[in-house]
Nucleic acid binder design. Sequence first.
DNA 1: TATTGTTATACTCTATAACTATA
DNA 2: TATAGTTATAGAGTATAACAATA
Lengths: 149, 149
Amino acid sequence: MSSDQASPRLAYLLKHANLRISELTEKALLPYDISGRELGVLNVLNGREPGSQQHAAQRLGIDRTTMVALLDTLEDKGLVSRHPDADDRRRNVVELTEKGQNIVRWAGSAAAEAEQVFLRPLTEAAGQQLRESLQAVVARPDSSGQVRP
Amino acid sequence: MSSDQASPRLAYLLKHANLRISELTEKALLPYDISGRELGVLNVLNGREPGSQQHAAQRLGIDRTTMVALLDTLEDKGLVSRHPDADDRRRNVVELTEKGQNIVRWAGSAAAEAEQVFLRPLTEAAGQQLRESLQAVVARPDSSGQVRP
DNA sequence: TATTGTTATACTCTATAACTATA
DNA sequence: TATAGTTATAGAGTATAACAATA
């Protein structure tokens, strides 16, 4: 069934690749006092016109109830601000504070370095290929056009 | 920080790749009444001389306390048997039952099919490359020899 | 009636600490 | 004293259901 000793199951490889990059990223972010998940949220908010909480949650593929707690923490840390949307008062407009903008810049580059460490066993071309292949399989793969190697 | 809209963070891609293959695998395993994690355990036990619980846990990279509950379930389902090692009675020898051997065969091939669906957006070469690159980054990457593309 | 944010709750996966029985 | 299995417990991360305010 495709595994045994020759080639481990893809699910196993993905799980452990995930564990490894998470470990490297968390370590790299330690000085900035944020987690990888929190940086993900900041990234979504960065350089975009302010959107609702739900919008941010959808972009990250997490539930809106999960986003609440995440934003609570980020707001406590002074990295994001929430205020009701004037046009639709059910919505919260979420924005990076100035501190948040600084953190996303520095923590972001620390996370990018962690990625480089993660990819170190691969050539640059293989690393690039890995990223593209992952994007292809993640992008709701409707059996459409295949990615070339 | 390497992400924004052009290229999402690697951590994001790996997390969602993981979610997708898990979803596909769980669905494929539904008829066999086992989870992907349980199949992983059965795979480790399959075709090897019987080992201890701890041995199996190490091969999967999970804690020995986690293995206990996993084996409890598999034993309840009649797929594995545990009995004390005659040479060292602290150890439990874990083996697949005949039913377990059948399940691992059929469920294993269903899981392999799920992998194929997962890889469908990639050419065969790109899929092979993905597997090799993941193996390289997961294999405790000590910056040694790089994998070529 | 439907939607946004929120709260309460629960479930899964995981690890740590402490217990037991062996060694 | 050290190790294998076990138990109890706790902490992430996640989702579902229900509620308030608003549309």
